[in-house]
Nucleic acid binder design. Structure first.
Length: 1139
RNA sequence: GCGCCCGUAGCUCAGUUGGUUAGAGUGCAUGCUUGACAUGCAUGAGGUCGCUGGUUCGAGUCCAGCCGGGCGCACCA
């Protein structure tokens, strides 16, 4: 076979293996065919659907890596592992980005192009970015079942949205109500809370006064003073509020005041929540339609009324001047307010101040910094604005047919009962705290991109619908509706009806909801003069249904359709491309949809389905909570058992990453520089439970690839304006090249080299991949026939054929494989990564491979045999020739390597597939852990469980087995835990300590690596025998020849010494010895020991410690103390000798 | 204001239910290129675990307070 290159080439592997996996259908997950008796347990992960707004960033890369890791791990464990891909239409964000581009490039607003054309443009945008997103995910190695890709606006999801809305409407859970929204007067749309930013602006704090009037409406001469930062809202005041305990105003509560500007009389009310006695004058004006707190106050005191004074464009409307439905100034003074109508609110503010001053009602003004909410999109201040919205009721509710529903409570119960578990557990707080407020969910958005609200409405005469307000369907209303609209009575189960207050006095608004799939009813309604609601649904309404909608709900008769066009390279025809449902004939009614019941959670967690949601903490409320409650509402079961919340990625300064901040690293840049495996491995190593991840960013020099750390100045730098615009540049400190870099503030000049944002920390993964690649390369070179001997042949390996290092590495392998399983099952990716890295690098490479080199080279058969004989300790030696020794080493080496390749596959899949396929050529049949793999010929319905093997000296530990056709579907290793041998590991540790001590002496005396040294060891006979049994390794690992070992060994003159717990070592150096340096070294060592001994002695002298601490801890201290005393004695002896 | 989290080596982070001498990667220092790997090997230096107090025989770990940082939710006439 072609020799492996010295360095791992990630890009070649990525190019080769992703299409290979995809074409062979390894990513596909399907329910068992009808009639199948053996059923694999399902495992489902629903992707937190990325927005089609733009390309993926590091957060997605982290999120995707972890999901893929778990999916690949579960797949190898024998689960039918589905990772469901898809994207979100992300209403607000996507429409905003397309609108912004339209205005920048063509100067067009959405009103210029119209609803249909805008939506068409956004669809085009969606196609482009969905393709890009899928490309990025595939580049990372995402093993989603791409045939099942969904989009929240596609027909499958739309069905689910329509039907859920209909169900909720008929249950009375959806209602129409008023709500204060953040209104962008420039774009004339509502914006979400997370789309506004606060900015302190210089403002003023004015104090005015309203005249108090008597019952007849005449001024009493008394005034009430109040302060405001927004004087124009006086036009919409409907009350003045004081604290109920405020004695200054107690006599005024219940009286009225006159708004001098428009002559309206409004009451003085007492409300402890709104008014604060300490603040300002203690009295506060109430403008329910334009202030959230005032609105809340209005809800507590509905009699005060509510007046909207703004037009959608921010100008003052008629109602501000004259629309006074309540009471009117009997004095009939001419309202000044008429002249405000049609003027902008800020202009009116000034007029109001002037007029109030003229009327003698102005008291004072002071400067003040005021936090003002601004729209992210238009950068203009937003106004609180009262508008009609649709809501879902979150708290307790009785349906018209008498069922009790409490959506929020059901989701609370799911977590409190432990049915849904958070990892880490603390995130359950965020979820529960939010749900417990049971705030109704506003689901309407004034946008064009999204699911249009399936409500048709018509304004009717109130006399036709007296006293029937409300959003609950009654049979009587329905019958009336059918009669009224001449709808077909057969449609009565497909529509819901509600009546709401109309826009003009006495009128009623008839609201009709139509179930999914009935365009004929929609047409009939439109012919009857009904109009569809122009708004669309909150994006989260559709994504809340994601876990069951993607599996085909509410269609229980058909499996959800597959999209075979998304697969890479469709030219290649392959059996796996076929729709597995194509041959299943006419689906049975009822549960003809087999995908939904199989992959949607339907058993208790103990029963195998380990479906998990892996997401970031900022959507625990918006998304996770809503998926749980809609899952329970529609499916009667939670959508996942586990929720893993992973950390967020921050830049080196602790800021969240975003393109607009100039710190948004593109994962594709990282993959190009370091390779997908390295990026995945590094990301997995980040994903711990406690902290967010800081990722210091650097720019890669485009000419020499040197990394230049990013500073905050780089993030904010802007081109200098002057004669000719000079863009900021960097100068590479290494190659002196000057170049531009990616910035949020400007585009680099076309054609010039640009430094990309990367991060040095990914070298961690790259180096590891290269290390493992080379370990495999070493193994492969030694499995082939060569100067060391024959090529690898498969054969069983028994315990008594193993050398010390073989037993040791297998013992360690057993520990590590268990750790990896435990860490992954708790979503502790950092710990799993560390365990694998440490084992691979520090144990397998640094010690095991070094130790078996002599055996593989066939160069030192005697020592190898000696060691074998010694390790066996008395058992008869089988085949003691060079070839046999090499063959055993090859088999053990391959077995360990095989397990490692399997265990690393979920982390670094491309690398592992590459190695797997190469090993397959060389060794299609391998010695693998006996009993550790399920027999591949019989699938069992339960996942594999650990089995212990009989561990007698002659028992077969490794058995030849055929390797699977691909690493991605290879069995996950279950190493017998009986292989663990703590006593042997302890012996091995002494060997390691001794070798490090010898190397230390070599380093101190700067002995050339080629020069052998002599080593004498003084130890008890037992320890000495053990040391002698591994003598050859001293030579291999430290170029030290063990001259003698035993209790009688004496320290020769002119020797460097070291002292371990239970043995002392001497290395004769004759003239080389530096007595002073040796003395200093040992004196230091002695001092350290004395301190520790003193500490231990004090502890043991404390009667409380001896009596209260657990006996094993006390015994442990005694033992340690004893060992340290011995060691100190040795060191002191050496010091005496030296001086 | 309420809640959650974090503060450990120059930097980025581990540290299981409290229990021997607090670890890793990177950076730093020194020495190594004859066959797995310089994206490498070996050795070493580097930490009063944010501060104060408490519980305990024993605290990086538990409790309280403080300081510093992050996030979420409220509030801001």
């Amino acid at each position: 076979m072609p020799e492996l290159s010295k360095q791992y080439d990630p890009h070649a592997a990525q190019k080769k293996w992703f299409p290979f996996w995809e074409h062979r259908g390894y990513f596909n997950a399907d329910p068992p065919k009808p009639g199948t008796t053996v059923v694999k347990p399902p495992h489902t992960i629903m992707i937190p659907l990325p927005n089609v707004t733009g390309a993926l960033h590091m957060g997605h890369a982290l999120n995707g890596t972890l999901q893929d890791l778990i999916t690949r791990w579960r797949r190898m464990q024998g689960y039918e592992a589905l990772w469901m891909p898809g994207t979100d239409h992300a209403g607000i964000a996507t429409q905003a980005v397309v609108e912004r581009r339209m205005i920048e490039e063509e100067g067009l607003t959405r009103h210029d192009v119209g609803r249909e054309a805008l939506v068409n443009r956004i669809w085009k945008w969606k196609e482009t970015y969905e393709k890009r997103i899928v490309g990025q995910q595939k580049m990372l190695g995402a093993s989603c079942d791409w045939r099942r890709i969904r989009f929240t606006l596609d027909p499958v999801c739309t069905k689910a949205v329509r039907h859920t809305f209909f169900k909720m409407f008929r249950d009375g859970l959806i209602y129409r109500g008023k709500r204060l929204v953040n209104w962008d007067t420039f774009l004339q749309t509502a914006v979400a809370d997370d789309e506004v930013f606060e900015e302190e602006v210089d403002g003023h704090f004015w104090t005015f006064r309203y005249p108090v009037v008597d019952d007849a409406g005449h001024d009493t001469g008394e005034f009430i003073r109040f302060s405001t930062t927004r004087p124009e809202t006086m036009l919409g005041d409907t009350a003045v509020c004081v604290h109920p305990h405020d004695e200054r105003y107690a006599h005024l509560v219940g009286k009225k005041v006159r708004i001098p500007l428009n002559g309206r009389l409004i009451p003085i009310i007492a409300d402890a929540l709104l008014a604060d006695q300490e603040l300002g004058t203690g009295a506060v004006k109430v403008t329910p339609a334009h202030d959230p707190n005032d609105y809340a106050c209005f809800q507590r005191h509905p009699h005060i009324g509510i007046i909207n004074i703004l037009n959608p464009d921010g100008t003052i409307n008629e109602a501000a001047a004259q629309g006074d439905p309540f009471s009117r100034d009997p004095q009939g003074s001419p309202p000044l307010a008429a002249k405000y109508v049609g003027k902008d609110r800020y202009e009116v503010r000034e007029l109001v101040i002037d007029d109030m001053a003229e009327l003698g009602c102005f008291e004072a003004v002071e400067d003040r910094k005021i936090p003002i909410k601004h729209s992210d999109r238009s950068k203009t201040p937003v106004e609180p604005y009262l508008s009609d919205q649709w809501f879902v009721k979150m708290g307790p509710h009785t349906t018209p047919d008498g069922r009790e529903i409490d959506l929020a409570q059901s989701a609370i119960d799911a977590v409190e009962s432990g049915r849904v578990r958070f990892f880490p557990a603390r995130y359950a707080n965020t979820y529960l705290d939010w749900l417990r407020e049971k705030r109704d969910w506003c689901i309407s958005r004034q946008l064009w991109w999204g699911h249009r609200i399936p409500i048709w409405s018509k304004l009717v005469n109130g006399e036709d619908w007296p006293d029937e307000l409300g959003c609950q369907l009654t049979d009587r209303q329905l019958a009336r509706l059918i009669e009224f609209t001449s709808l077909n009575p057969a449609w009565r189960d497909r529509v819901g009806c509600a009546v709401s207050e109309g826009t003009t006095p006495g009128s009623r608004l008839l609201l009709v909801c139509v179930d999914d799939g009935h365009p004929e009813i929609e047409t009939a309604l439109e012919q009857a003069g009904f109009l569809q609601d122009p708004d669309v649904l909150d994006t989260w309404f559709s994504s809340a249904l994601w876990p069951h909608a993607t599996l085909g709900w509410p269609d229980l008769d058909h499996n959800p359709p597959l999209d075979l066009n998304v697969l890479a390279d469709q030219d290649e025809t392959d059996a796996h491309f076929e729709d597995p449902e194509a041959d299943s004939g006419t689906p049975a009614p009822g549960w003809g949809n087999r995908v939904l019941p199989y992959f949607y959670p339907h058993e208790t967690p103990a029963d195998g389905n380990k479906s998990v949601l892996i997401t970031s903490r900022d959507i625990i409320t918006l998304w996770v909570a809503r998926m749980v409650l809609t899952g329970l509402y529609n499916m009667g079961e939670v959508p996942f058992w586990h929720v893993h919340v992973h950390p967020k990625i921050l830049d080196g300064f602790g800021q969240t990453m975003s393109k607009s901040k100039g710190n948004g690293v593109d994962p594709v840049d990282l993959i190009e520089k370091y390779g997908a495996d390295a990026v995945r491995f590094t990301i997995a190593s980040f994903a711990g439970e406690t902290q967010d991840v800081r990722l210091p960013i650097a720019y890669a020099c485009p000419s020499c690839d040197h990394l230049i750390p990013q500073t905050l100045e780089h993030q904010t730098a802007k081109p200098a304006v002057g004669d000719g615009v000079k863009k900021p540049t960097l100068i590479c400190p290494k190659c002196r090249a000057e170049f531009q870099y990616t910035s949020p503030n400007y585009d680099p000049d076309p054609g010039v080299p640009v430094a990309r944002m990367v991060s040095e920390r990914f070298e961690y993964g790259r180096n590891f991949c290269n290390k493992f690649w080379n370990a495999a390369r070493f193994a492969i070179l030694n499995l082939e026939a060569g100067p060391g001997g024959a090529a690898y042949t498969p054969a069983p390996v028994a315990a008594d054929q193993l050398a010390l290092e073989d037993r040791w590495i297998l013992s360690r392998l057993a520990s590590v494989s268990r750790q990896v399983d435990e860490h992954l099952s708790r979503y502790q990716f950092d710990a799993a990564t560390r365990a694998l890295r440490d084992f691979t690098w520090n144990e397998f490479c640094d010690w095991y491979l070094e130790m078996i080199k002599p055996r593989l080279r066939g160069g030192s058969p005697e020592t190898a045999n000696d060691r074998l004989a010694a390790t066996r300790q008395g058992s008869a030696a089988p085949g003691n020739n060079v070839a046999e020794v090499r063959a055993v080493a090859q088999r053990v080496l391959l077995a360990v390597l095989d397990s490692l390749v399997r265990m690393l596959q979920p982390f670094t899949p491309f690398l592992c597939e590459e190695l797997w396929q190469r090993l397959k050529e060389l060794a299609p049949v391998r010695a693998l852990p006996a009993n550790a793999f399920r027999d591949s010929s019989s699938d069992t319905s339960t996942p594999p469980s650990g089995r212990s093997s009989q561990d007698s000296a002659a028992s077969v530990m490794l058995e030849p087995r055929s390797a699977e056709e691909a690493c991605i579907i290879a069995r996950w290793p279950e190493i017998p835990q009986s292989w663990r041998d703590p006593a042997l590991e302890k012996r091995f540790e002494r060997l390691q300590e001794t070798i490090v001590a010898v190397r230390n002496v070599r380093a101190i005396y700067n002995l050339p690596p080629g020069t052998p040294v002599k080593l004498l060891m003084r130890a008890s006979p037992e320890v000495a025998a053990d040391v002698q049994s591994v003598a050859a390794q001293f030579d291999t690992l430290a170029r030290a020849v063990l001259e003698a070992a035993g209790a009688e060994v004496e320290r020769p003159a002119g020797a460097a010494s070291f002292s371990l717990g239970d043995a002392d070592g001497y290395i004769p150096l004759a003239d080389l010895i530096n007595t002073e340096a040796e003395l200093e070294r040992h004196t230091k060592e002695a001092e350290k020991l004395r301190k520790l001994i003193a500490g231990h002695e004090a502890k043991l002298a404390n009667p409380n410690f001896v009596s209260k601490a657990p006996p094993q801890v006390v015994a442990q201290h005694r033992e340690t103390l004893e060992a340290m005393r011995k060691q100190l004695a040795s060191v002191e002896e050496i010091i005496r000798d030296l001086s």
